[in-house]
Write a protein that binds this DNA or RNA. Structure first.
Lengths: 189, 189, 189, 189
DNA sequence: GATGAATGAGAATTCATTCAT
DNA sequence: GATGAATGAATTCTCATTCAT
């Protein structure tokens, strides 16, 4: 049998995505994970801890996915497309994780500070990319937060919409290229 | 005393924003609303109904705010800036409602169908705007969903970030103009 | 229906006496009290609080019973026999309360400080009695604690034994007079 | 390593004394005993059995301690002072065992019959002593139970008080001699 | 023999909902 | 109409006991 901790996290993720944070009792999580109710408490002290661990796990995997193959020495456009292409493909390929992240980021369950800390790595990579772009005169001379928000807001919303109403995006032109280009256009000079 | 139903909705909104959907018992809602626990049930059949009503109320107010002063016969740019300016100012001015909407839209508590229906009015207005823009050759020839998602995703994320970390946006240039222009740039040809 | 709080305390007392502190679930207490499990929590925040309240209640009743008709201006012997006679009759007449007190005083559930504080009133009355007796040269010139312990230890143990094995005390001479006299003899000069 | 059974009994005793019968899980007992949770079950069938064994162990040790050096052919006063002096010194020297006995004797966990049986040996020795004393006209002509209860009640309570509030007994005169003499005085003619 | 992870029945506690006042 | 005490099902969490290693 594979790692039990992993199984519990997976079951929790599925339960939250399907029924919402407010409707996923430990009993159902354990049933879905295929273990006794008490077993969860060997791996996580409280339900709160379980959810936090799930969040951390999510962020770790997302960070790894986004930065895969990313090389800060490549040309700017390539860096941008690699990073955000990685992000976009990852969330599209993992709808459950995307939906889960959505709920966790919207709820006060994960406190602001924890949320902030966990994203540090990714934010630094992005911050460097934007700084370089502004230096080279490629990006608009606006605060990183603003430039980044447009990109991240667009892509995350796009992924969400595609998963919630895929029929509206069946056309050929709605692919990764389009949406990434749109974002690129938005922030370049 | 103002309308009691309104008070209950307000109390529910505050509780959800502060403690999350999974931690707002009816008893605390009634206490915050200044009424007995039983009284809520005169206005809403179940807790589920209360939350749905809250969502509908939210959408109704948002729709009204966004379309205020909007005139489909005005020039395209003006229409765009009126509509999204309205949106952006409204969510910035009502952080509680913005945060609440975030949670409700992320959670499966409000089913997909209900969510979709409630946004019909706003979507039609936006759809018309985008169609007109593409007709006039001002907007990119991409699906409405895509164009709209970039705008909506950027603005909603922007408002969220400003509320969660206002210190990062204290600079002068981070104002409404910038962010709306960025969105306009992203979708125009 | 009489006071519900009182009923819950009574049920708790009976449960503890019959099954022990370690085997009286709230569910059984509520069943015995004739109320829903949740109702207990309207009156006591936690089980711990319930037990503490029970202890306080016990002490209050015991103090009242012991000091009934006690008058510090009466002759020493009369004062002694009134006070300890009251005590002895009370514990014999209320075996459940006596057994309960025994358990609560033996267990660390009620912390030492709380235990000490609750007995302050009774200890002052007894202290005065012993001081007066030593002044008058009637009692031995030994520390109050010691004199008192002999009396209290003897009487409480006596009551316990009589309740646990009444058959051994069926003889006529084992009455209140004997045991009180024995205690009086032990501490007088 | 010394006997593991002994270690488990010792750990159990400490846990019960510190946290009370109602709050000493097997897991914590095993941790304190320095063995696996399952190991306890090699030595004791159930938790109930463990507690019973602990009680029996306690009584055995107490009986041995009390009767050490006791000789029924010695003069009455010496017999009395040996026996109860042994008892008193033993409980003072072993506060944990004293406190534990207190809890076990107060709780219905150890059933009345078992309690009674285990004390048979000690009771016979004491019974003989009291019978002899009454025969010789030294003790009051009252039932053994009564005479014994005064002695045992006083001494056990005394030990308890000294351990719970040692500061009140710091005076020189509060020693073994005083308290034993007090008891002797109480029951002699 | 010893271990401690796993179990699930059962414990404390919460909370949506009802209903007598 | 409004109230909030009462309810008990449902929830989180604990712990005695088992058993594969």
């Amino acid at each position: 049998m594979i790692d039990k901790r992993e199984q519990i996290l997976k079951a929790t993720a599925e339960m939250i995505v399907e029924h919402g944070l407010q409707a996923c009792p430990m009993s159902k999580i354990s049933a879905l994970a295929g273990c006794g109710a008490g077993t969860i408490y060997r791996y996580f002290e409280t339900k709160q801890d379980l959810v936090k661990a799930l969040f951390d796990d999510l962020i770790t995997k997302l960070t790894a996915a986004c930065t895969e193959g990313y090389d800060a020495s490549l040309p700017l456009r390539e860096r941008f497309f690699t990073l955000w292409g990685n992000y976009y493909r990852y969330v599209l390929a993992n709808p459950c994780q995307r939906a889960l992240m959505d709920q966790l980021l919207a709820s006060p369950t994960i406190c602001a500070e924890h949320r902030e800390n966990s994203l540090t790595v990714l934010q630094q990579v992005i911050g460097q990319l934007l700084d370089d772009g502004k230096h080279q005169g490629v990006f608009k001379d606006l605060p990183n937060e603003l430039l980044n928000t447009v990109t991240y807001g667009s892509l995350s919303m796009m992924a969400k919409k595609q998963q919630q109403a895929p029929e509206k995006f069946s056309c050929v032109s709605c692919d990764e290229e389009d949406i990434l280009s749109l974002c690129w256009d938005a922030i370049r000079r």
